[in-house]
Design a protein around this nucleic acid. Structure first.
Lengths: 197, 197
DNA sequence: AATAAGTCAAACAGTGATGTTCGGGTTGCC
DNA sequence: GGCAACCCGAACATCACTGTTTGACTTATT
């Protein structure tokens, strides 16, 4: 049952909305660090009681969904800011990589958390939205002859996602320096996309 | 305490050894499918009682270690059969990919199971053994001028592992046909390794 | 055929998670 | 100032898992 009565305005009290924002933000870090975080862990990280957490999000899945919604929105903004539809494909792609990979350090952990707690369909629905931009760019590059066309677009998209993910994992594990990642990823992925001479 | 007395010969009874083999084999599939399998799940998959399972492997970690030992041994054989130290690096590498990738479908799930249950050090120790072959091959290729040398060897090794892993995941998810994987992986990874003209 | 080794179901204790309820204490808001 | 919305600790019921013990049963080995 809802312990939370709706107040006349339809909107929650200011401190409640502040706490919700705090929860989503803290939970994002928590899920990224450990996809198996408990509700206790999230509540503690947010500096709130477990009961309060449950009063805003009836279940763990709901927290996760809220986190995913927020991250996807943020991610879409970052991608669109890189204007992947403008300019030569290779340059647009380089821009995209450079601006995207730091985001993936967050999103990487979320992805495995989502895979464990949500259905495959729902995960894909979240995942597809930002990836569609990458797909369009690669497709455009292939049609303009800037990218190799003898490999399926889907595979190339997967490759991009996989290597971004891997690289942020390496940084998190301390095996790669963050300042090199952009350059290394750009070189590696452009090598994959470059047409064979 | 050991519930199992040592018999004079030092060796276990025939049915016991058969069951141990069955357990390791069933557990391998179980861990690959779901890194969080319970001991009940493993026992059921092996067609044995839970108590029997515990009598052979005192803890879940021990089962996992046994599975890893067996898989690594098998993997090392497969790698060495591809003779990565002979012939031109690019050809040796192609041979390696073609013979290795099916193995990764198994090993992928194990890797995440290991990461969750074992210390990072122990995981690395298992992981390093087969990867050393790949590292040597890439290193040789760089020194002979067959592979690009402007990217760190470690990163290239990680890339290889990551894409093999990703590809077998795509096959498992039904998004890629198994018969194309070898060719696609070969093209993709040789593009990463090829020196820039 | 006798013995030791192995198997197994049922039941136990312990742990750690999810969600829920209760009651008293705070605090935003009109 | 007063009320409703909100916060929160403590305690509860469930559930799923790990390991362990007991005692009876079956089977390999000599």
């Amino acid at each position: 049952m809802a312990t939370q009565g709706r107040r006349p305005g339809g909107r929650k009290r200011a401190d409640a909305e502040r706490n919700i924002a705090t929860i989503v933000s803290a939970a994002t870090e928590c899920f990224a660090r450990d996809p198996d975080v408990s509700m206790s862990g999230i509540a503690k990280a947010a500096g709130l009681g477990r009961v309060t957490l449950y009063s805003h999000f009836p279940s763990r899945e709901d927290v996760l969904r809220a986190v995913l919604d927020a991250s996807i929105a943020e991610g879409t903004d970052v991608i669109e800011a890189a204007a992947p539809h403008q300019g030569p494909p290779a340059e647009a792609f380089a821009r995209l990589i450079r601006s995207c990979w730091p985001m993936l350090s967050r999103f990487g952990g979320l992805h495995t958390a989502a895979q464990r707690a949500l259905t495959a369909d729902e995960v894909r629905r979240y995942h597809d939205e930002p990836m569609a931009h990458v797909e369009r760019l690669i497709d455009r590059g292939q049609k303009e002859g800037a990218f190799r066309a003898d490999l399926p677009v889907d595979w190339l998209v997967t490759t991009v996602y996989s290597l971004l993910h891997t690289a942020s994992g390496e940084v998190a594990a301390g095996r790669m320096a963050a300042e090199n990642v952009g350059e290394i990823l750009e070189k590696t992925l452009l090598a994959v996309l470059r047409p064979i001479s």
